[in-house]
Design a protein around this nucleic acid. Structure first.
Lengths: 218, 218
DNA sequence: AACCATTGCGAGCGGAAGCTCGCATCGTCA
DNA sequence: TGACGATGCGAGCTTCCGCTCGCAATGGTT
């Protein structure tokens, strides 16, 4: 009874601290964040923080682990309903949109995902995150294309494209963000198109599927 | 006479310190580098370091400014001889190769160029670097395509592609680096092709210029 | 040789950040 | 209600880092 209560409280505190850490990491980055600030943001004392996490790094690792799970779940959801009948553009939408939406509701994700120059252990966790993403992407490519090729290298390039273009897709005005997202998707489509092949059952089987996309805003 | 000598010595010391800072920034990043370490690496005392630079940030700014000049010069050199008769692939080579070579001989460049989470002033300097790069790229696109369009947005996307794929092109084994460079160029070509148009005087005027590039290593 | 401006040194200062520890508070049970 | 373990607090310890300042070494001029 007592233990149960204690565990529940602990879970709550833990969540509370992780949420606070998320906000602080998002605004200051990992290196710029201080544990005192995180504790403050959570409304608890530094001592309480250290009852739940052995050190600052562990907080970021816990966030990374949670993000890895959530992102995998989001992509699993995106795969429901099958992929074979999608155009390449739609396929890219299916992979990019959940990722961006996830990024929006987990703002510290970007900071941890992109930020280099962290401790080796944390870097390892983040690398796992990227690898998981790449693995899922390559599986999707394989399923969609029907080819029995190892798409992992291609997927890894795509992950780096994500990282590189993420700032364009989430920073600046709403219009700039829309542009950023569009360019991100365009890059993905144009890069993967010759590698994935035309696909088997597409909605646009005519020889000129996309009329050579241009900048619409001159 | 005395002044002349003093100035010469000062320049030497300054160079010495910048070279040391370059090594330290390259291996530890900006935040991870310590001024004491830089002074040590240069074989001087912290006090001497602070005779030439008011603070740590100024060191990085001096490096950034020097990098901006050098990179601009490298690109200017790459434009010599005209661009009109080049294929798009060759054009991308002309812009990417100097950049990569520059990165190799100025290893701290990548750390400063990619690293986020620095002081606003330094971030501004780095942003200038990116903008200069994007500006030159857009001018090249304009000259090559012959179209009187503003290619700056496209060029900015390209700069972000660079940043994102740079790790793939400069880390890992030599074979991995070659692959990384190849993919970087492939991304550039495929992304810009529909925007830049087919070009006017190309070496490959047949309707199927590149036979749908694939992964060569399966 | 004597002098002195310039250059160089490095122990140490000020402060910030991660983390701790002894004490206060709370909640449960006799 | 009193006692006692669990929970929470926050001042402060330890370490590290950017930066300084008083003193020593240098070398050119007289």
């Amino acid at each position: 009874m007592k233990d149960r209560r204690r565990q529940e409280r602990g879970k709550q505190r833990s969540e509370q601290l992780l949420a606070a850490a998320e906000r602080v990491f998002a605004s200051a980055g990992y290196a710029g964040a201080t544990t005192n600030h995180i504790a403050d943001e959570a409304g608890v004392s530094p001592g309480t923080l250290y009852q739940f996490f052995p050190n600052k790094q562990a907080i970021a690792e816990a966030l990374a682990a949670r993000y890895a799970d959530r992102l995998a779940a989001a992509h699993e959801r995106a795969r429901m309903g099958g992929l074979e009948r999608l155009s390449l553009t739609a396929l890219v939408d299916r992979m990019v949109d959940p990722f961006l939406e996830f990024h929006r509701e987990a703002p510290a994700f970007g900071a941890l995902f992109v930020e280099s120059q962290v401790s080796p252990e944390l870097a390892g966790r983040v690398a796992e995150l990227s690898q998981g993403f790449a693995g899922r992407l390559s599986a999707v490519f394989r399923e969609w294309s029907g080819r029995r090729i190892d798409f992992l290298p291609t997927a890894e390039v795509c992950v780096h494209l994500f990282k590189g273009l993420l700032p364009l897709a989430v920073e600046g005005s709403a219009a700039e963000q829309r542009r950023g997202v569009k360019e991100l998707k365009a890059v993905m489509v144009r890069y993967t198109e010759p590698i994935l092949g035309p696909g088997k059952t597409k909605r646009t089987p005519n020889p000129k599927p996309r009329p050579t996309p241009q900048h619409d805003a001159a």
